[in-house]
Amino acid sequence: MPDFWFFLEVLVGGLLSGTMYALVALGFVLIYKASSVFNFAQGAMVFFAVLSFVGFMELGLPFWAALPVTVGLMILVGMGTERFVLRPLVNQSEDTLLMATIGLAFVIEGVAQLAWGVDVRRLDLGIRDEPINWVMDKTGMLVSQLDVTAALVAGIMVAALALLFSHTKVGRGLRAVADDHAAALSIGIPLKHIWMLVWATAGVVALVAGMLWGARSGVQFALVWVALKALPVLIIGGFTSVPGVILAGLIVGAIEKIGEVFIGPYVGGGIEGWSPYMLAVLFLLIRPEGLFGEKIIRRV
């Protein structure tokens, strides 16, 4: 196989896994936009969502019943978060909110394991992590079916959310809330509804991300750490930008795979784990708001 096809295979593999990072990062962006807080509980939500989904299937629900039930559950989690965590903390500093999400993460992780146990589960979505045959026949590249499906799903969700933010009344309200809670309150934007909506949406995004990751690497507690992979994506893309995290997800996915295959051997390998973070550090130095993040506007 010529080198070019091999490079392309690595690149495509990287880009496709990058969409999965982007999907996780999307949950963070949603919440950051509305509550201006880095939601430490996002990883826990991913874990909780997919564990519940598998749990419902084990209870005998078919796939198509378990999905809406879990979506409903995640909406409840979102509403509960608004009621018991955010509402009492209106107008508190962002640090306070951040600490609250750390607490929330422990609660969600605990409840998840209390309810469904700690065993590693398998999740079969009916899509196999195997190369697509006709791509292999035509070009010799190995491109996983699961990766392609995941990328498609991520793409659709991202497009939908981007439209929601920029073109709808709710999206405008959401951006207003992100800018200034007090002013949003003063002109009658219902903070409650917006927060509920956003946390519920983030819960659903967490479910989708969890299902895709779970199908690939098993439904287990380690899914909580998938959220950490989203951190460099967020820093590179900007905490507030939906298109930003998509692009950053692709960049991170590509860099880590290409780095591992082509640069790794020179430094003893194993750079997949940390190369995205190095890139994130570079971004923090050069362009702290990320590729598409909102510039910090400050009048002097």
Binding site: K169, R172, G173, R175, A176, A178, D179, D180, A182, A183, A184, S186, I187, G188, I189, P190, E294, I297
Partner: peptide
């Protein structure tokens, strides 16, 4: 606000990342 009483807060409190027009539009949110 729905009953017709709106406060303009001290220090203006515009939505900095929204355009001037979007700011106005949010006023009609309710």
């Amino acid at each position: 606000v729905g009953m017709g009483l709106v406060q303009v807060m001290e220090g203006r409190h515009c939505f900095g990342h929204l355009t001037a027009e979007e700011n106005l539009i949010t006023g009609a949110y309710a």
